[in-house]
Amino acid sequence: MVFAHDTEMSLLAAATLVNSACDPDTLETLEELDAFYAEFEYAGRRDHDQAELDAVRRLRPALRELLTSDRDRAVELVNAMLLEGRALPQLMRHDSWDWHLHAVSQDAPLATRILIETAMAMIDVIRADEMSRLGLCADDTCGGVVLDLSRNRSRRFCSTSCGNRNAVAAYRARQAADTPA
């Protein structure tokens, strides 16, 4: 584990949310938002309506900018997000989670909680000077965000699909090079 569990989950959620905008869009329905909410173990208020889905979808460009910016720009973005969200960090314990940080009320809209929890997670990334753990997918046709939590910092693709597609292409290129003309 590179970061605390809550930090890793917030970063994974943010990367997944940003990458949900890639073609095809994987966050178009309330059911898909419910699955995202459950997968990343969010707690607190849920409105279960189109307005909530739209608000979460509107976060994607801001989170993409945050996750792909340099360290100085990330600091500016984090500070602005925390100020706008009126963040007040507090230790909380709920569900299966032991003590961890939340910076807004559990009554705040889901989009606000996602934004602030991502900003809080980025504080750890920035302070540890680990911005290199974030980047863009090595697949030239993708553009997804990569969060590399591996020990050896070897993750290059945003998904298994991109990694497999590139491995197959490399295999075929090697096979073509080995085939006499």
Rank of each mutant, 00 (worst) to 15 (best):
A43K: 01
W97M: 11
D98F: 07
L67V: 05
A43G: 15
E52N: 11
E31F: 09
R93M: 14
S69C: 07
A87G: 04
N79F: 02
L27Q: 10
R64F: 01
R60L: 12
R73G: 00
A38I: 05
R57V: 14
M81V: 05
N79P: 02
R93A: 15
R71T: 14
P61R: 03
P89N: 11
H48L: 08
E41H: 11
V104S: 03
E84A: 10
H94S: 08
Y37T: 12
L67E: 01
D54I: 10
R86A: 09
E52P: 15
M92Q: 09
R60P: 01
D72P: 00
G44W: 06
L88V: 12
L88D: 08
A55T: 10
G44V: 10
L66D: 04
R57N: 10
R46P: 02
A87N: 01
R45G: 03
P61Q: 03
H94V: 11
V75I: 14
L83P: 01
H94E: 09
T29Y: 02
L77G: 03
E84D: 14
S105H: 09
L66F: 09
L30S: 08
R86T: 09
P89W: 00
A74R: 12
R57A: 14
R57E: 02
E76T: 06
E41N: 11
Y37F: 15
V75K: 03
A103N: 11
L101W: 02
D98Q: 11
D72W: 11
S105K: 04
L30Q: 12
A38D: 15
S69W: 10
Y42W: 15
L30N: 10
E76M: 01
R58K: 13
L27T: 06
M92G: 03
W99H: 02
T26M: 07
V75T: 09
M92A: 15
G44T: 13
Y37S: 03
P89D: 07
G85Q: 08
Y37M: 04
D47M: 13
L27I: 01
P61W: 04
R45F: 15
A38Y: 08
D34W: 08
R60A: 09
A80G: 12
F36E: 02
P89R: 07
M92Y: 06
P61F: 03
T26W: 02
L30V: 12
E28Q: 15
R58Y: 00
T29Q: 09
A80L: 13
D25S: 08
T68W: 06
R46C: 06
A35L: 13
Y37P: 00
Q50H: 14
H102F: 05
M81I: 12
L101S: 08
E39D: 13
F36I: 08
L82T: 09
E65F: 04
R45A: 12
P89E: 04
Y42T: 07
